[in-house]
């Protein structure tokens, strides 16, 4: 039953996530709200980090990760791997179906005015969804233990965030570095400063 649910949830994600791997985040966020025993918001941030730092498309990596964790609740490693396979297949099935349909009408699809104008609205919306999920992830990480109070405020995290932002946006020399480098540095900083 869990496997069916996993497939269905990722099928929906694959069908409605528009605009690449990051666009799956809002769907995963909703999934975590709907099925808190599958994975927490904290797990989600860890998954994004692992998916960014390993080979493979981010969206696929995250689907695999969620499936692995969820399957793992059912029993041994075999259940985990089956979960990973099922959620990944769920994610790619809509792609296969949609692309096969589009191929049949390829020439008219790309220049179709309805497709073009739908995407005029879809692109900012997809950005908005990611922004909203990003805000939630940021909020969850700025207050430890899910408490909103001055004592729970993650000031070390805020300092690291500001420094990372400067190095990924302002400093010319480090701006173009691959995310994996910043993720690695952050892991070391986290260990040193007990974050």
């Amino acid at each position: 039953m869990t496997y069916l649910l996993l497939f269905w949830e990722f099928f929906k994600t694959g069908l409605f996530a528009v605009g690449g791997g990051m666009a799956t985040i809002p769907f995963l966020y909703e999934m975590s709200d709907k099925f808190p025993h599958w994975f927490s918001h904290k797990d989600l941030a860890n998954m994004i980090a692992v998916s960014e730092s390993t080979p493979g498309p981010i969206g696929v990596n995250m689907a695999t990760y969620v499936g692995f964790l969820t399957g793992g609740d059912l029993g041994t490693v075999a259940y985990s791997i089956l979960g990973a396979v099922i959620s990944t297949l769920g994610l790619v099935t809509p792609s296969i179906i949609v692309i096969l349909i589009v191929t049949a009408i390829l020439k008219s699809f790309k220049n179709n005015k309805y497709v073009k104008s739908a995407f005029y609205g879809l692109r900012p919306a997809s950005t908005g969804l990611i922004a909203s999920a990003g805000l939630s992830v940021l909020f969850a990480n700025m207050f430890l233990d899910d408490k909103i109070s001055l004592s729970a405020f993650n000031y070390k995290g805020l300092i690291l965030a500001v420094i990372l932002w400067i190095f990924t946006n302002i400093v010319k020399k480090t701006k173009g570095w691959h995310p994996i480098i910043f993720i690695g540095i952050s892991a070391v900083v986290g260990m040193i400063f007990s974050m």
Partner: peptide, 19 residues
Amino acid sequence: QHAFGGVRICVCVLIINAV
């Protein structure tokens, strides 16, 4: 856990940059 505490902050910044 501490390592991932740092990593999660980095993820926040990466999402902001992507947005």
